[in-house]
Design a binder for these strands. Structure first.
Ligand code: SF4
Ligand code: SF4
Lengths: 169, 169
DNA sequence: TCTTTATCGGATAACTTTGTCCTAATATCC
DNA sequence: GGATATTAGGACAAAGTTATCCGATAAAGA
C-alpha cells in the first residue's frame, strides 16, 4: 500500500512531531533510532523540505523540524512525493477508464478500497498519528517506533526478499 | 495493489476462460490481443502451469487451457505466485507485530482494507470475473479486455515512468 | 523420419526502487 | 577567521521488477 519510502517518511515525521516543538532533530539520530538507513532518510527529509512539510537548518545545532503544526499536515502531504496517487484512480486491471457502469466483480472492491484510502490520506493528520504515540509514551517508557534489541527493522527488511520469482524455479 | 505481473495473469486467465472449454490458446495470441509483452506473458503462464492453474500442450495445435473449471480457480490461486501475501499481514508502518490492542489511527483502516482484500482473494473465482465479461460480450461486439486502436496497453505503461524521484530534482 | 509449430527455460537487458558514499554549502562555536 | 557540525545534493551501487531473446524440447502432421 505504502512504498518503503513512504513508510520511512511517516515514521520519521511521527518521531519528529513527538519532540518538543521547535526542537531540531538530526537526520542521523532519526535514522539510528528508527532503524532507517541514514543517508536514504536524508534524501526523504530533503524532499519533504522541498514540499514545505519540514524546515531544515544547516550547521551546528541544526536539523529538521516541522514547517507547521502537526494538525495541519495531512497524511497526503507526507506521502505525495513518494506515491503515484493518480494510479489509484485507475482500473485495477489496467483498463483505460474504470466506471461504475458495467462493473466487474472486482470493481466494487477496488472502488471501496481506494475511496477509503484517499479519504484516509485527506483526513488523517500527523497529529492524529502522534496522539496515539504520546498516549503510549505515557504508560510505557519505550517509544513504539523505536527499535528494541537487535535492529529488528533491518532484519525484517532482509527477510522480505524471499519472494517467489516469475521465470525461475 | 496488484503487481503488473498479477494484473497480466488475471487478464490472461479471463481471456482464456472465455474461450470454448478445452480450446488451446496460444501465448503469442494472448499477448498480441491483450497488449501484454508476449515473452513475459509466456513466463507468467508457465508459472501458472506449475501451480496447476493452467495446463499446457507443446507442439502443433498446442497452447494453454485451464487445468480445472473457472469456478474452481480462486483469485488467490492466480496471484499467489506473484504477490507476497504474507506482507499484508504485517503492520503498514513496519512494526514487527500489528495488534488491535493499542492501535494507531491507521490501524483500523489497514485492518479493514486487508481483511477485504484477502476475502476478495479467497471468495472471488475466475468464473465470477468472466461472468461479467460474457454478459458484456453479448451486448457489445468488442471484448472489454481487448485492446482497441493503437496499443493502449503499451502506451499507458510507458507513461507510468513519469514518477517523481526521491533524490533528484 | 522430417518439418513445422509451440511451450520450456535459461541468459540477459532495461527500468525502478532502495541504499551508500563523497563533496559542497552553510551555520555555530571558539 | 578557523574548526566543527550538519544539511544539500550529485554520483553511484545493489536489489527488485519487468521485459526481451534464443536455443532446447516436445508434439503433430506430412
Ligand atoms: S469494472 Fe473491473 S475491469 Fe472494468 S474498469 Fe472497473 S475495475 Fe477495471
Ligand atoms: S497500530 Fe498502527 S503502527 Fe501500530 S502496528 Fe497497527 S498499523 Fe502499525
Amino acid at each position: 500500500m505504502f512504498s518503503q519510502t513512504s513508510e520511512y517518511a511517516i515514521r520519521a515525521l511521527i518521531e519528529i512531531a513527538t519532540r518538543p516543538e521547535g526542537e531540531h532533530v538530526l537526520s542521523s539520530e532519526l535514522g539510528e533510532s528508527l532503524g532507517i538507513p541514514q543517508h536514504y532518510l536524508s534524501k526523504i527529509l530533503q524532499q519533504l523540505v522541498r514540499t514545505r512539510v519540514l524546515k531544515s537548518v544547516r550547521g551546528r545545532s541544526g536539523g529538521f523540524r516541522l514547517a507547521r503544526s502537526a494538525a495541519d499536515i495531512r497524511l497526503r502531504d507526507i506521502v505525495e512525493p513518494f506515491e503515484d496517487l493518480k494510479k489509484c484512480e485507475e482500473c485495477i486491471l489496467g483498463q483505460p477508464v474504470c466506471s461504475d457502469a458495467g462493473a466487474c466483480p472486482l470493481h466494487d472492491f477496488w472502488g471501496d478500497v481506494r475511496e477509503r484510502y484517499v479519504n484516509e490520506l485527506e483526513t488523517k493528520s500527523l497529529a492524529d498519528l502522534t496522539d496515539y504515540q504520546l498516549k503510549k509514551l505515557g504508560s510505557m517508557n519505550a517509544g513504539l517506533f523505536k527499535r528494541v534489541g537487535s535492529v529488528p527493522g533491518k532484519e525484517s527488511l532482509k527477510q522480505k526478499s524471499k519472494r517467489k520469482k516469475v521465470g525461475t524455479k
